[in-house]
């Protein structure tokens, strides 16, 4: 079955992104397809490569990147939410005239239409948030 996942909260403050990560892994293990993981609200903070949690803690951004690498996941960070919160890729860096970017590997920044499209194309939408 084809799933879309929506993540509304950033890593660490809320369990939501860990729940989403574990759900996504379990769905993949069961042979389901993840059409897209869409990061919205503070969920966009999952997509920075600049986090460096303590060694004995989970690195949530890296975990998403590793999962995307292994399974070819489409990890989409909402552009409007990202602009508010300072998640920047190469394109946004150039468009907004920022002095760097911080998007993590496997993530891409795109529009809200990607969430709507995921709702249309997927058979199930599962939302994790606060």
């Amino acid at each position: 079955m084809k799933f879309a996942i929506q993540v509304n909260e950033g890593p660490y403050n809320h369990e939501a992104s860990v729940s989403a990560l574990n759900f996504t892994k379990a769905a993949l293990e069961a042979g389901h397809e993840i059409f897209r993981v869409f990061f919205y609200h503070d969920g966009v903070n999952n997509g920075t490569r600049f986090t460096s949690p303590p060694q004995d803690d989970i690195n949530i951004a890296n975990s998403w990147s590793a999962l995307a690498d292994k399974h070819g996941l489409d990890l989409v960070v909402c552009v409007a939410a990202a602009q508010r919160r300072g998640i920047v890729d190469q394109g946004e860096q150039e468009r907004q005239g920022k002095d760097g970017n911080n998007i993590a590997p496997g993530f891409r920044i795109s529009g809200l239409g990607q969430l709507i499209e995921a709702g249309i194309q997927s058979e199930r939408l599962v939302v994790f948030g606060d």
Binding site: F23, K25, A26, A27, E29, R124, V126, V127, G129
Partner: peptide, 20 residues
Amino acid sequence: VDYSGFVNLTVENDKAQAWL
């Protein structure tokens, strides 16, 4: 249930509603 049970529940029902 475990996470795989969670996944199964989303499959068995035809949609999910998160009471955030």
